[in-house]
């Protein structure tokens, strides 16, 4: 990922910022410029919202594939969490063994390194989930 491509999503990735439609109140993550249900009435009016950082495991998997960016993490847990605000967010779940993960388990967002270009390249930070104990 080139630097500008990573940089322009900083805020969304660092702070889990999505958008809210002022018309119907739906919250979206990833952020979007137009509400699929309110269309024109939402254009230019979508509001940035920081999504509350707690939720529950909605589904989970352990990925065993050789994904070059995640070599040091293999196998790694990947989940979709249903956040307390109702919006679903997918991401890695860390600091827990796969056998201890259950659907419905409370999780929260943690600030982590996601990838790096290489040992000399830019470090890309973002969100991962950790158990909410």
């Amino acid at each position: 990922m080139t630097i500008p491509r990573y940089w322009r999503e900083f805020q969304h990735r660092y702070r889990l910022i999505g958008t809210k439609c002022p018309k119907c109140g739906r919250i979206y993550f990833p952020p979007r410029e137009v509400c699929p249900y309110c269309h024109r009435e939402s254009i230019g009016k979508m509001q940035k919202v920081e999504i509350k950082n707690t939720g529950k495991v909605y589904s989970y998997t352990v990925i065993h594939q050789d994904v070059p960016d995640f070599k040091f993490l293999k196998p790694y847990l990947f989940i979709i969490a249903e956040m307390d605000s109702g919006v679903k967010v997918s991401g890695q779940l860390v600091d827990v063994s796969p056998e201890d993960v259950r659907i419905g388990m409370p999780v929260r967002i943690s600030f982590r390194r996601i990838r790096e270009e290489d040992r000399a390249g830019i470090i890309e930070y973002g969100y991962k989930f950790i158990p909410d104990e």
Binding site: L73, V94, F111, R112, I123
Partner: peptide, 16 residues
Amino acid sequence: PGPDEDTATISVEALR
């Protein structure tokens, strides 16, 4: 530290 942790991530988590 986990392989995805460093001084920046630790600082952010402490501050949060």
